[in-house]
Amino acid sequence: MTGGDGAPEGDARRAYLAEHLDAVRSRLADACRAAGRGVDEVILLPVTKFFPASDVAILRDLGCREFGESREQDAAPKVIALRESAGDDVRWHMIGHVQRNKARAVARWAHEVHSVDSLRLVDALQRGVERARGDGERTDDLAVYVQVSLDGDTHRGGVDRAELDPVADAVAQASGLRLAGLMAVPPLESDADAAFADLAGLHQRLLRSYPTATGLSAGMTGDLEEAVRHGSTCVRVGTAILGPRPVTSP
């Protein structure tokens, strides 16, 4: 099996990941410095969707402890594999769309969910956490980011800004869930700086009602600098660290 860039597994893959992880860490440090922020204020979240558990294990050895996944059926086996080989010191973030019928399964392994955009999903995740607790599979609350659509095209994910307050209120009141903050992806062909400025304004509005919802999940490979400038606390980076998707991915 080959890595995401076609390089063989093993030492060559480790070298590739180390080099690219260092480059992204340097970019993030530069972005934080330019924004007058400390690098410890922003989580670097490698997005390991489509990549094998062996890549996660390498990145863990290189100091990463938080990882993003987007499909429950792919993430769950990695969680089990890493738990068996490395224990419970890795935190998992669900960053992709969560189907309500997958909410119970996601609640068993995810520490944080970045893509909550409906009242029905809030209810499904709450029930999933309650079930996981009843089965002894988790004791902590599930941290939840409300995903907001900045252009109103909710087909791409995210709640319309007019519905942001009701969804955030539902998360804050749900048993077993913790309102962590907001997440957004800039609209297609938009100016990232303007989009993240808009998101920052929405976040400030949320903080007036929920001052502990300080998380702002924003920024990816192509726009992490703009996101950090506008207050992102978590940048989700896949390609710049892991390379193109493996040729075997769907």
Rank of each mutant, 00 (worst) to 15 (best):
D5M: 09
D5S: 09
D5T: 09
A7F: 13
Y16E: 11
A18V: 08
A18R: 09
D22P: 08
D22R: 02
A34V: 00
V42E: 05
I43F: 06
V47R: 00
T48Q: 04
A53S: 13
V56T: 07
R60E: 15
D61F: 07
G68Q: 01
S70K: 02
Q73W: 04
D74M: 09
K78H: 10
S85I: 08
A86E: 10
D88C: 04
H93G: 10
G96D: 03
G96K: 00
H97V: 04
V98S: 03
Q99V: 13
R100I: 08
N101H: 08
K102P: 15
A105L: 15
W109D: 05
H111Y: 13
V113S: 06
V116S: 03
R120N: 07
Q126C: 15
E130H: 15
A132E: 14
G134K: 03
G134E: 15
E137V: 14
V146A: 05
V148F: 08
L150I: 06
D151N: 05
G152S: 02
R156V: 07
G157C: 07
D160V: 07
D160P: 09
A162P: 02
A174T: 10
S175K: 12
A180S: 08
G181C: 14
F196K: 01
Q204I: 06
P211A: 12
D223W: 06
C234K: 05
A240C: 07
A240E: 09
